[in-house]
Simulated assay, not measured.
Amino acid sequence: MTFARDQRHELPLLMVATALPIGVMLLRHFALSMRLYRRNRELQEKVTQLQLAEQLAGVGRWSVDIATRRHRWSEEVCTIVGVPPGTPPTDDLLAGLLVDGLKQMETTFYSHRTDREPFIVEFEVENPRRGTRILRARASNSFSAEGAREQVFMVVQDATDEYLRVAAAERERAEAVAREEEAQLLANTDVLTGLANRRAAMATLDRAIMTARRCRGELGLIVFDIDHFKQVNDEHGHAIGDRVLAEVGRIAARNARDGQLAARIGGEEFLMILAGAPELAVTGAAERLRLAIEAGTSMAPLPNVTVSVGQAMLGPGDTSLSLFARADEALYAAKRGGRNRVALAA
Results as ranks from 00 to 15, higher is better:
residue 239 A to G: 03
residue 248 V to F: 00
residue 260 Q to K: 06
residue 61 R to W: 06
residue 80 I to D: 02
residue 187 A to C: 10
residue 298 S to D: 08
residue 116 R to I: 11
residue 289 L to P: 03
residue 153 F to T: 13
residue 173 R to Q: 05
residue 173 R to F: 06
residue 271 L to H: 01
residue 92 D to W: 05
residue 98 L to P: 15
residue 252 A to K: 01
residue 54 E to L: 02
residue 234 D to N: 09
residue 17 A to C: 09
residue 141 N to M: 09
residue 17 A to T: 11
residue 219 L to E: 08
residue 206 D to L: 14
residue 40 N to I: 08
residue 97 L to K: 08
residue 164 L to T: 09
residue 182 E to F: 00
residue 122 E to V: 04
residue 60 G to A: 07
residue 323 L to C: 09
residue 70 R to M: 07
residue 36 L to G: 15
residue 205 L to P: 13
residue 203 A to S: 12
residue 2 T to R: 13
residue 80 I to Q: 04
residue 335 K to R: 14
residue 177 V to P: 00
residue 206 D to A: 15
residue 264 R to I: 00
residue 268 E to A: 06
residue 264 R to P: 01
residue 190 D to A: 12
residue 297 T to H: 02
residue 35 R to I: 12
residue 323 L to A: 07
residue 221 L to W: 00
residue 236 H to Q: 07
residue 300 A to W: 03
residue 189 T to S: 02
residue 74 S to C: 04
residue 140 S to R: 13
residue 253 A to Q: 15
residue 165 R to K: 13
residue 277 A to V: 08
residue 190 D to L: 00
residue 232 V to H: 01
residue 63 S to N: 04
residue 50 L to F: 12
residue 7 Q to I: 10
residue 117 E to M: 07
residue 113 R to L: 03
residue 233 N to T: 06
residue 285 A to G: 05
residue 225 D to K: 04
residue 206 D to V: 15
residue 294 E to H: 11
residue 263 A to D: 04
residue 329 E to F: 01
residue 114 T to V: 13
residue 232 V to K: 05
residue 181 E to L: 04
residue 215 C to F: 11
residue 275 A to G: 08
residue 109 F to A: 07
residue 81 V to E: 12
residue 12 P to G: 06
residue 100 D to L: 04
residue 168 A to C: 04
residue 160 T to I: 10
residue 44 Q to L: 14
residue 187 A to V: 05
residue 65 D to M: 01
residue 49 Q to T: 14
residue 202 M to A: 11
residue 54 E to P: 01
residue 338 G to F: 00
residue 214 R to E: 09
residue 170 E to S: 01
residue 291 L to K: 10
residue 212 A to R: 13
residue 256 A to S: 12
residue 1 M to T: 14
residue 109 F to V: 10
residue 120 I to M: 06
residue 235 E to D: 07
residue 226 I to F: 01
residue 133 R to C: 14
residue 312 A to Y: 05
